[in-house]
């Protein structure tokens, strides 16, 4: 469902013409991804882990058509995310790691109904899916304006937004961020069910315990390079940078 083939992303400086008016984060070009290849099949959950700045979010954003790669290609359901971007978007549900991605002046339900319509669902179906997703995520009965939500509730709503159209591929950037342990457990179970129903899931996370529990395969990214790709139970047998990363992530828990 998702094929990432030799993907490279360098964030360039804007052209000299635009540089005076565009604000950029760095003084020079930044190499975010260097020759990353991976795939996610239907029914599979692949976790991408790595330290801060490893390129996890860049990978998610390229696959979701928000960024253009420098080289390489990404296919979603066989559609190139650059050449066939609009077709690719129809197959995707993306959760970005930012709880501002919903409208704070709308209620949770209003947000979901809006994004369901943007995903192409008819109004009756949008209402139905909004109800289902709110119930599934434990937000039904707590429908108020999003600015009254906790950060955990906003994370859940963000996840719900991605799930609305039942997409064949879900891209989830830190789906359990800000969630309490019980909510995390429920989300992990929900994601497993979604995969068992046939969807392909790519998620990024700093929580190695969840990744090991939930994911069928794990990809470790360090400095934009894939340093490990395999089954979670094989991680303990790795050495070098991966072992160091595992130790780092374990220490951060």
């Amino acid at each position: 469902m998702l094929v990432v083939d030799d993907l490279t992303k360098q964030y360039p400086l804007p052209s000299r013409l635009l540089r005076p008016v565009m604000r950029v984060a760095a003084d020079g070009a930044v190499d975010a991804l260097r020759g990353v290849s991976l795939h996610v099949d239907p029914g599979e959950i692949v976790g991408v882990v790595g330290p801060n700045g490893a390129g996890k979010t860049t990978l998610v954003k390229i696959a979701s058509t928000l960024l253009e790669p420098t080289s390489g290609r990404v296919l979603v359901g066989g559609r190139d995310v650059i050449r066939d971007a609009s077709d690719a978007r129809g197959l995707l549900g993306t959760m970005l790691a930012d709880d501002r991605v919903v409208y704070w002046r709308l209620t949770g339900r209003q947000n979901l109904e809006f994004f369901a319509a943007m995903a192409g669902l008819s109004r009756p179906l949008a209402r139905q899916r909004a109800d289902e997703v709110l119930t599934q995520l434990g937000l039904a009965g707590r429908d108020r304006r999003v600015f009254g939500y906790s950060s955990g509730m906003r994370t859940l709503l963000n996840l719900g937004r991605a799930m609305l159209p039942r997409p064949p591929l879900l891209l989830l950037d830190e789906p359990t961020r800000s969630l309490d342990p019980l909510a995390s457990r429920d989300i992990v179970a929900a994601l497993r069910r979604i995969a068992d129903d046939g969807a392909a899931l790519l998620l990024t996370s700093h929580r190695l315990d969840e990744v090991v529990t939930l994911c069928d395969r794990v990809v470790v990214l360090v400095g934009g390079l894939v340093t490990f790709a395999g089954r979670p139970r094989d991680l303990d047998h790795s050495d070098g940078p991966v072992a160091a990363l595992i130790a780092l992530l374990a220490a951060e828990r």
Partner: peptide
């Protein structure tokens, strides 16, 4: 400013309709 620009652009709704 609201942070919702990106999620609007990744929806399947064509840009002219939006």
């Amino acid at each position: 400013n609201a942070g919702s620009f990106e999620v609007l652009l990744i929806s399947p709704t064509p840009l002219p309709v939006l």
